[in-house]
């Protein structure tokens, strides 16, 4: 692993809670690592697990999915489906040989700027320790 390895981590954040929390972290001038790039989605329920596969396939070193806390979903129940989908996806990824440290999901509310900061820091630290992700990227089969 390169000493100066800077992972690229993709984060899906719901517009109403986590994206707002991330904005609040900015308004509060909190500092966190530069490694995370946020994709804004209306609800964590909008995040298709296939987006995560796509990110790994393209070269993501880590992926983070964030939404409102259970019970706080702007759309009432969206995040309960998120929870099932990604609890399942995490297991399935691990089953397929992806280190669980590369995929994270967190509930972060609009007021939890500090939790956003801490989550990004923690995920970056974890992924850094794992090194660059090569899984899902080796194209060892025949090209056509």
């Amino acid at each position: 692993m390169a000493v100066d390895f800077e992972p690229k981590i993709l984060a899906f954040c719901c517009n109403w809670c986590t994206y707002t929390g991330a904005d609040l972290a900015g308004q509060s001038r909190m500092k966190y690592p530069e490694n995370v790039r946020v994709v804004r989605v209306p609800c964590s329920g909008r995040v298709n697990p296939q987006f995560i596969l796509r990110a790994f396939r393209r070269g993501a070193d880590g992926v983070l999915v964030c939404g409102c806390h259970p019970g706080d979903c702007h759309y009432a129940t969206g995040n309960y489906f998120t929870r099932r989908r990604f609890m399942l996806m995490r297991e399935l990824l691990e089953f397929n040989g992806v280190d669980p440290g590369r995929f994270h999901a967190r509930w972060i509310s609009g007021s939890e700027a500090a939790k956003f900061r801490d989550t990004v820091s923690e995920v970056t630290r974890t992924v850094k320790a794992l090194g660059p992700n090569e899984r899902f990227q080796e194209a060892s089969g025949e090209e056509s």
Binding site: A22, D23, A25, G26, Q27, R29, Y32, E34
Partner: peptide, 24 residues
């Protein structure tokens, strides 16, 4: 592209923040 709340305001490293802004 949110380069203020989620970039300029949360990062101290000028180069890395610029790189992130370009990505965004």
């Amino acid at each position: 592209a949110n380069i203020r709340e989620q970039d300029a305001w949360v990062h101290a490293d000028f180069e890395k923040a610029t790189e992130k802004a370009i990505d965004l």
